[in-house]
Structure formats: structure tokens, C-alpha cells
Design a protein around this nucleic acid. Sequence first.
DNA 1: GCGAGTTATGTTTTT
DNA 2: CATAACTCGC
Length: 732
Amino acid sequence: MTPQSPDEHDIPATGKLTASQQKAVFHREGPLLVIAGPGSGKTRVITYRIAALVEAGVPAQNICAITFTNKAAEEMRQRAFVLGASAGAHISTFHSLCVRILRRYASVAQIDPNFSIYDDSDQTKCVKQAIADCGLDTSNFSPAKTLDAISTLKNKLIDAETFLTQADDFFSKTLSKIYSRYQQILTNLNALDFDDLLMKAAFLLEINADVRTDLGNRFKFLLIDEYQDTNHAQYRIAKALASTHKNICATGDPDQSIYRWRGADIRNILDFERDWPDAVIVRLEENFRSTPAILEAADRLIANNQSRKEKRLLATRPAAGDVAIEPYEDEQSEALGVAENIRRLTDQGVSLNHIGVFYRVNAQSRAMEEQFIRNKIPYQIVRGVEFYNRKEIRDVLAYLKVIVNPSDQVALLRVINTPARGIGKTTIDKILDYAGRANLTLYQSLLKVSEIGTLPESTKTKISQFVKLMEGFKQDANGPVEPLVERVFTESGLEKMLISEGVEGKDALENAGELISAAAVYDKQAETPSLVDYLQQIALFSDADAYDAASERVAMMTMHAAKGLEFDNVFIVGVEEGLLPHERSADNETEIEEERRLFFVGITRAKTNLRISFARYRQIRGQTLRTVPSQFLFELGLNFSESAPRFEILPDEVSTKAGENQQYEISNHQSSIINHKLSSPFQRGDIVVHQKFGIGTVREYTDMGDNSVVVVAFNSGQTRTLMTKYARLAKI
DNA sequence: GCGAGTTATGTTTTT
DNA sequence: CATAACTCGC
């Protein structure tokens, strides 16, 4: 929750619904879909509905709201609390909900409730093993690509057995083998990956009618935010959860779907009516967040997406602030420019937490950071997972994972010799060999170390000591987490190891301290704290969860992480071909459209001031390369201002022209770089005439295909940058 | 068994 | 360019 937004406590937006819409939104039983553009208060609709249901006598614990991030869940809980309806309502992400379900019905689902949740790097280790076990080479089957393929299958709820029956070509058959082996490894380690959480929960719900009924009774009203970004597994879970009562309320905006690459299926929202025939659809088209100029830019951009239902953003705010596009020489001067602009804002009394800087890829934060440090501008980089990815943190967590789930071999291998205790590769190989033959897990073999003949006595002693250490930790596994984390850190020797590193280990030591504090916070917040729950929760942390709206710092984040947030002042940097749209989506119009939606999300985060920038040169992989301004910039509609060199969007002037030409332009839209036209219609020195600005001389022409721009010095003294497709320039 | 140094590798977005 | 993976010498 943003303490700064004036609408914090009164939550006004949905008050602008018509009486009949309010009735439909708040009190309706049965399926309901709210299609709502950015800034229309759609998340508030859910909050209001929770409050309205409670007011109407529905016990809060019969309500289940699903959000996109843990952060959003937390905000919604607080908002619901303001409305007097928080106690007992289940508000969480899909993944957290699935963890809860899987733990609760563990015996029905035939899983051990102490399962570990495997992240990317854990998964990579397992899939590498799987590829090797299948006698394949990782040069033909790269772990990353294989994992991607498996993830896609899981998101579609195709399990290994099913896929085996479908696989008909060589690639699929091989993939199917790896998939099966990978699943087997995860099962042996009592681990689930992110996709498993959804898949297992979906299957449990679909196969087991008792569970379905049970949960249907528990959650009589289901509310889902950001429905446009649900994947097929989540869709099926939602369907099953609502199957008995049909009280499903989804909100979303197809134009803000930005997770297709992760399996999000936009059909979920488009086909809602078909799935729930008596669904009521409410559209919220008014925008209460942004100025007309910002919405104009966003509107024009998104109009370029062909696979889209026409939807306008209706501005309700009066004109204010400024929308500008600024070119810079390179990423340093871009960062400096942003820093200077921020300085200007703070001089006017703007507080830093009303400022957001967005970029396409995380790596872009570096140039920003350097300039911000130099200019003494406090900032926060919104990357929640970063902390938990640090070596020292992963080490501590690995100990904790083994305590909860001794089968977790990935975690065990991480800690068995960290800090070094004389249990090296040779020893581990011998134990693994024994484990394989005795059909035991690695940890079970450690317990029977005396029976492993191949090991020397001295090594056996070392292993026994390690086992004794771990078994000692287990005594404290129940109850509050913080004391155990502290104990593990000290008694494992990790603390001593870091202290001995001196200055080098200072940061790590501090981080470990922070982890202990975080555990204490968890202990306070959780109803019944337990180590399993703690570990399973932090495994589901996302970048966006790290955003601290209250702290007086500029927020820097990817546009993905910016989803659902809003700032008075927004900077979007690096809007260049190859970055936005990203090069990996360059050859595919569907992916370009997703990149466009991502930019749309970025733009519509801005309430008052929006500055979009690009650099003419940028360092990529150590090399400084010439860049090309993003095709999206030209789609916004450009015009040149007197105070060169600076582009400005002039909403009224260009918009009518853009409107007139839209039909034609869209059908003609092509990727500008690929279809580079050789015959330039304009050349430097050409004399041209413009309807409005009169006669001028061409200064510069940039061939961007359909989006070509021409810089013209008009005889009136003005120099303007015009898009050839809008400007209707005639050569004389 | 350990760690320093070298070489390969791979580069989006994230629950 | 940055990091991960790997090799080699102690």
C-alpha cells in the first residue's frame, strides 16, 4: 500500500461506478468478469467486493482472493482491513494457495508435506542429472531449453506419463524421457518446482471430488485479480475451485497481459463468457490515475496491436504535468539526465518515493545506480529474489531445508562440506554409490555411514559429526524459526567461516544477520510459525515483493515488476530496438505485441509526469554499439519542440491525424528494421512543404520503414521532427 | 581434499 | 563483460 497516494484510506475509485454496476460488482453471486483498463481501480473492485460480501453476512473465511504477487496480497489484506473485512479471508497468490492446499491434503495427494520448493538453479541441477541419466549430452539438450519445454508442458497440465503417449517425433520422445527422469528425481528428493505446485494442485482438485467439495465449502467466493496473466494450470484450478458454487469473480485487462512467455493464456479472459455462460461482464473504462496526455500516448501505442479488442482509455483527470521523449548520447548520460530530472523534481518538493524508473532488463540498473550514487540520490532496486540468491543466504537456507526435508539432496550437497569439513568429492561419490546400491537417499546413507566399507575411518568420523550436527538441529525444528536460524548459522560453522574471511566476509555476515531478522519478522506475523512454512513461503518471493513504497527512495525496477504499481513521476529508459522490443522477440509479431503491451504497462504506471528516453550508443556485452530508437517511440506520435534536442508528444495535434490514418497504418504495419527500404523518399537538402508549418529544408532523414522520421528546418525558424506517415510532407 | 586460476559460455522478462 | 564451470597443482 502506498501511504503517499491520497486515496489510500477512502479508496474512492469504484464509487464512480453507476448504481447498477455497483450492484453487479459488489453483490452479485455467480460468475462475474470485470474488464478494466489501467488506473480504473480494478483491484479495488475486489477489495470492495470482499467488504460488501462480509457486510452482507458472508463469513470472511469463506472468501478467497488470488493476487499476482505476495505484495499485492499484502496490500489487499490491508485495504480489506481498512474496510473492516480482513480477518479470516484467504488472500494470496496462486502459488501460495497451492502450497496450502498441497500441505493440507498431502496424504490424499500422496506427497510428503515437508516438500522443498525448487527454484531455477535447483531445477537446473536436477535436469542436468536427468539429461545425463538418459545418456544424453547437454550440448544437444541444453538444461535451460529443456526446463523451458518441461515448464510449458506442466503449465498445460501435461504430466510426464501423458506426454509419453503423445510424443511422436524424435525430439518429443527424447524430451519425454528427460521429463520422466526429471520428475522421478524431484520425487526422490521430495521436491516440487514452481510448476509442480500448480500442476499437482490442479490434478488433486480435478481428480478428487471430496477435496473439491471441501474447498468449495471453505471458499464460497473466489476472486481473481490480473486474470489476463493466468496460465492454463491456474485456469483449471480456478475452475475447479468454483465448480460447486460458480461464485467466481475475475478482473483483468487483456492489454496488460505480459506473461505469455511464462505460459499465461489470454484466452482465459477472452473465453470467460463461454466457460461461465451466465457470467455478467462489467467494463470499467474510465482512468482515474493518469493525465490525458499520458493516456493519449498509451492509447496510440496500444492501438498498434492487431490482435486486440478496441478499447479506449477515458481520462478523468485534468491536464497536468509533462510527457516527453528524450534522446541521450549513451547510457551514462541517460542515467545522468534522469538523475538531473529527479533533482529538478525534488527541488520542487517532490518526494523520492513518488518517482519510479523502469527498464526492460535488470542489467540496465547498473548505469542508473552509478549515476544515482554519484549524484547522491537515494534509490531502491526492486529485486526481491536477489537477497535470497546470495551465496551465504542460500547456504543457511540449505541447512534449513535439509532439517525439514532430509531427502533434499540438492540442499544436502550444498552444505555437507560448507564450511569445509573434509567431506570432498571422492567421499561423496562413494556414499552416492552406496546409496544407489542400497536404494537409500543420500542422508539415509549418511546415517548408516559405518556400513560403507569403501570409506576410511577418519572420514566416517567426520560424517558422523556432520550427522550429529544436523540431528541436533532437528530438535528445534518446530516452533519459532528465528532461534533455529541463528543456531544453524553459528553451530554449522558458517559464521566462523565468514568471520575468518575478514573484510571480504563482512557483507555476507551482515546479510546473514538480516536473514535472522527476517525470520524474526516471520515468527511475529505467522499464525503458527514453522520452519516448513517459512521455507515454502520465502521460496515464492518475487521481485515485486521487495518494493517498499514507504521509504524515501527512487524505485528502480523492470517493467514487469512495475505491474500493479503507480507513481506520480515515471522514467522509462532504454527504449531502443533490441531492448524494447527485446531482440529475442524481434522476429515474431506476437512477441512484439507483448513487448508493446509491456511498454503500455510501463507508460500507464505514470500519474502526472512521464519521461521516456533512449541512448544513441549503448554498451552491450562490453562493446559500445550504435542503437536505433524503438519503433514504439514512433508509434507514440512524435513532434519536435523548439528546445532541441528533445522530442515532445503533442497530444492534440497529432492525435487526429493518427486517428484518421489508423486503419491504413495498422494493416500496413511491418517490422521497420527488417523491411528496410532502399529508396529514401527524402534526402538531406530537399525542400519540402507542410500543411501547417509551411516550407522547410530536410536536415536529417531516418529510414525506419513505416515509421521513418524526417527532421525539417522550417522557414518559420522552427525545426521539427516529423513522422513521414503522419506529416504529409510534399517535396517541391 | 582444497583452492586458485583458467577457460568456456551465454546473455529477457519471473511465480 | 560477467559469471559459472572446470582444471590443475599443492
